[in-house]
Amino acid sequence: MTPAALSRSRALGWAAWLAAAILILALPWPAFARTPADRVIRVEGRRFEYAPGTVAVNMGDRVTLELVATDVVHGLHLDGYNLTLTAEPGQTARLTFVADRPGTFRFRCSTTCGPLHPFMIGQLTVGTNDFFWRAAGLIGLAALAAVWGLRR
């Protein structure tokens, strides 16, 4: 191959890698990952924390939050969705909603439960995890491209 032809095929090769990268970033996320599911999430509230403190669901899921208070009366107010639950030990509070707004939302205790009550906070993430998978795809692609580039 002439040097000119060689460099042209190299350029073509890099263009192919770039196209693959753009594809990974922009390809619509496969529909199956978004099939809404019914999810029951049990959150225990105790002075002054939630367990679990972070909760993740997918867009469109029908989420049933169960708040179980294990010492005193606690509440849970979910920012963004504007929902409030109040639970007393022995009386689990339940609430069902459709997670139709993507993003990360704080939830906080809405019933005064002692000195550190303002710090009783948790977090709900609504969204597919496609950011993670796209990033992983890009890293894999970069590794392959590096191997390809070195071989030439």
């Binding site: 179980v68 208070a69 294990t70 010492d71 007393e88 030990p89 022995g90 009386q91 689990t92």
Partner: peptide, 19 residues
């Protein structure tokens, strides 16, 4: 029962309340 007993005896009576 729900208001006074379930925290110890459990919401379904199984002896598994939060305390």
């Amino acid at each position: 029962y729900a208001a006074n007993c379930a925290a110890c005896h459990g919401e379904a009576g199984a002896g598994d309340g939060v305390f």
